[in-house]
């Protein structure tokens, strides 16, 4: 899902930076207002947590492993605006310091993972869980469904960005200048792997973490609910 430099043309990168700027500005304004001063380090700790979640190898059938993004989990634990900042910070650290995800594609990666995935996941979780208690099984199911759907919508968004490159940037002689595959290839390729593998990894991780927290420390989930509201 981390789009590297060179896959997207300048117009797409520029537009997505422009789209993300007001979202980041609004997110920092909301978070500054809602976060108590005691919780200032929480943002940094949550960003590091988002970064480390992406490094966990989750075993899947067949002896291989996959990675989760953890954006929906961050949204459930922190609220969507704080999660947007935390995932953004994690993505910036990955791109700037570890070359994972492009510098010119930070806007696009943040749009997919820190905005689309976070907000879609959070609202699906909220709708399904309704007013149920923080320790109810309904919340575990809601977290799993939210994780699965949100990562697939984020993957679809990334696929559309890949797929429009040949339409936007093509030399006069017919060659593609950036990602060479159109929507007819990019969408099935991205959605196929996410619907079959990564979506399930995200769903299992999100649901099981909520289940464990319900069992071990429901106080954390209750406080998260209060802070978000």
């Amino acid at each position: 899902m981390h789009i590297p430099d060179g896959y997207l043309g300048p117009a797409t990168c520029g537009v997505l930076y422009a789209v993300m700027l007001p979202i980041w500005a609004f997110a920092s304004k909301i978070v500054k207002k809602t976060l108590r001063s005691r919780q200032v380090p929480m943002l940094a700790i949550a960003a590091a947590f988002s970064f480390v979640i992406m490094m966990f190898n989750v075993p899947i059938p067949g002896g291989t492993t996959g990675h989760a993004v953890g954006a929906v989990l961050a949204a459930i634990l922190l609220g969507p605006w704080a999660a947007c900042i935390a995932v953004t910070v994690a993505l910036v650290v990955q791109a700037l310091l570890f070359g994972d995800g492009g510098i010119t594609a930070i806007g696009a990666n943040c749009f997919n993972m820190a905005f689309v995935e976070v907000f879609v996941g959070y609202y699906i979780y909220k709708i399904i869980s309704g007013h149920s208690s923080v320790i109810s099984a309904r919340r575990v199911i809601a977290a799993g469904i939210a994780g699965y759907v949100a990562i697939n919508i984020a993957a679809f968004s990334a696929a559309v960005l890949f797929g429009i490159q040949p339409l936007l940037h093509r030399a006069a002689s017919g060659e593609s200048l950036y990602c060479p595959y159109g929507l007819n290839v990019a969408i099935p390729a991205m959605l196929g792997e996410h619907m079959l593998i990564f979506g399930w990894v995200e769903a299992i991780v999100t649901a099981m973490v909520i289940k464990y927290l319900q069992k071990q420390d429901p106080n954390i989930l209750e406080t998260a609910e209060e802070v978000i509201e």
Partner: peptide, 20 residues
Amino acid sequence: GQEIVAWNISSLWQRSYYLN
């Protein structure tokens, strides 16, 4: 294995939360 990973992530979140 998946249970271990989920337990690890939630335990990491617990530690993070109290570290704040």
